[in-house]
Simulated scan of single mutants.
Amino acid sequence: MSRTQPRGETPFTAADLRRRLAERHGDPAPDQEFGDHLLNPDIVQLMERENAREAAVLVAVVDRDEGASVILTRRSDRLRKHSGQIAFPGGSVDPSDASAEAAALREAHEEIALEPRHVEVLGRLPRYLTTTGFRITPVVAIVRPGFELTPNPDEVADIFETPLSFLMDAANHVRAAKTLGGVERHFYEMPYGERYIWGVTAGILRTFYERYYA
């Protein structure tokens, strides 16, 4: 909990998150990066940063009266890569996108029909490098209730919300490992009921925790 937290106020509200970001005095430095390589230092392909493809995701924190929650999706089983996995709305930054924020908002609208008028962008997390060759900019935003979400069936199988209080509790951050392609890979996982949050999504949530809630 932040040392400046008002007495008796929960830290897991949109108002408190807005304060925490303000206390950080803006976005992280451009060269500040997190990624899979921090848990897997032997992964050399991540060192080729100049070849990484730029992407952006929307860390959409919903301003609920009962406590803030984060919008997550389950990717369609029909997708060629990362099918069925839990993810943030997001994707590649296109040449027509003015910024990472514009890309994250566009992708969220395309994937889950989240209209930008409900979204207040607050800032960015440190970029996240993945083993699949992406450099992801997580865009943190507060979403006002009153929106309606519809999954794009070509990309999204399901949409759900997870309490921010659960995601920002370090007791729910589990270091795990599995063999992928004959190589043991280490990662975070945050199982939430029947939802298995792991890999890049869990890594970005861990970055969120370390920057604002640790």
Score class of each variant (00 low, 15 high):
99 S>E: 01
178 K>I: 04
79 L>H: 01
204 I>R: 07
69 S>T: 00
121 V>F: 05
27 D>S: 12
102 A>L: 02
86 I>S: 07
4 T>S: 13
145 P>E: 13
39 L>Y: 04
213 Y>C: 06
7 R>F: 14
4 T>W: 10
13 T>I: 02
136 I>A: 06
92 S>I: 14
90 G>A: 09
166 F>A: 09
197 I>D: 02
35 G>W: 04
2 S>I: 08
84 G>M: 01
113 A>R: 09
128 Y>R: 06
30 P>Y: 11
64 R>F: 03
189 E>L: 08
190 M>E: 07
214 A>N: 14
124 R>F: 11
161 E>N: 12
71 I>G: 02
95 P>N: 15
150 T>C: 09
198 W>N: 12
32 Q>K: 13
143 V>R: 01
63 D>N: 15
83 S>C: 05
48 E>R: 11
201 T>G: 14
135 R>P: 01
24 R>D: 08
1 M>Y: 15
20 R>L: 13
202 A>S: 08
93 V>A: 14
91 G>W: 10
91 G>A: 13
112 I>R: 01
115 E>G: 05
79 L>Q: 01
80 R>M: 07
49 R>G: 02
48 E>T: 11
23 E>T: 04
45 Q>T: 06
46 L>P: 02
109 H>A: 09
191 P>Y: 10
167 L>I: 05
47 M>A: 14
141 A>W: 03
147 F>D: 06
109 H>V: 06
120 E>R: 11
114 L>R: 00
151 P>Y: 06
100 A>I: 01
49 R>F: 04
147 F>E: 07
36 D>P: 04
